[in-house]
Write a protein that binds this DNA or RNA. Sequence first.
DNA 1: TGTCCACTGGAAGGGAGGGCTT
DNA 2: AAGCCCTCCCTTCCAGTGGACA
Length: 427
Amino acid sequence: MKENVFSNYIDSKPLYKGDRDILRPSYIPKELPHREEYTQDLASIMVTALRGERPSNVLIFGKTGTGKTAVVRYLEREVQRLKRDASESRLDEEFDKFDIGQVEYVYINCEVVDTHYGVMKNIGNKFVEDWDEQIPFTGWPMEKVYGSLKDRIDEERKVVVIILDELDKLVSKSGDSVLYHLSKINSELEQSKVSLIGISNNLKFTEFLDPRVKSRLGEEKMIFPPYNADQLQDILSDRAKSAFEEDILEDDVIPLCSALAAQEHGDARRALDLLRVSTEIAERERCTMVDTNHVYKAKNKIEQDCVREAVTTLPHHSKLVLYSILLSESNGKNKLTTGEVYSGYKELCRLSGMDPLTQRRITDLISELDMLGLINARVKSFGRRGRTKEIQASVPKSDTINMIEEDDSIESVEELKIGSHRQAKLM
DNA sequence: TGTCCACTGGAAGGGAGGGCTT
DNA sequence: AAGCCCTCCCTTCCAGTGGACA
């Protein structure tokens, strides 16, 4: 029989017993271990919506992977379930006095949609199915988008709960005008009511809000603490029970994943990723069990993938700035100033025949690279020799240089030098 | 104690690009 | 087609800054 590209893997036994998504952070399980209290608190606020009244606006804070989104989406799913039961007339008597169908959830991830136009457009378009009636992705004046959004919500005659995840990203990028409009929308609605749930990693982002917005938005506040290693272990064990047959994981695997994730501010997302990637590596190696070696391999792979993802998606000029930093470091220069990075960057631009951006712009690109965790940049004063940033790469040098050189639009320095030498000769 | 360096980072605005309205 | 809107990327301008040094 002819060999197929999949032949080697097709008969390997999968370690999962069913749905692989169970180990994805986006999966909402039946129970949320160690978040029962927060789920109840939020439910006690949101139950108002089932009575046709407007629940208080809520702000939820907590670091990455502390269950903020999971709790909110868990409640959303419960409401959908109640709606389904209601439509099939198999709802418990205790819900008789409620009109479940009148609650509508709209979820927006502000990391993905981070402009005020985009947010308004996305909310407005949730209520129309007809393509012709959709708000276009650009072109309309803001007031028109807002007016249309308001009319659409009002026509629904519902209590609309708008969830704005990663809200700090929206505020830092586009200011608080969306929140200003959304938080005062109720005074302009006649038949519907809107409640806002804002989710943020950053406790301090409200400092940048207009005081009126701040007080309207923060009617209720919740702060989610990080999970500790034991709690992470419970979460992983819970998911592992649904994801795997017994005896697939060695005893130390879950404690190790939990401990590694607990070191990173108790991030459940990281713990789940570790377990999922460990399993995938074990499957690829055609092992029948996942062991701690797979976990360490998974840890390395996740870290490498993060760097690769960040580096390969950088805009061209940012790549050149990073390239300039890495090349200087490979030449033995360990700590660089903004001026030195800029000189290196200009040289790379010259060799590749490109117009360099201004130093002011490069300062911003350096800050962006710092935020992405690819470099470490801190402002330092050298007295009479001025005040500048001290810059150091925080990624493996040679691997990252290779990643940058994989970019077709960036030739290696050697090629650039040869190219510019030839050009000079021709002139 | 004042000076000076090498920037930092905010503000304002230009212009290109995508799209809608009249 | 002209006018308008919004976003994104960028430039220009400039006040402010920390700390070594005279």
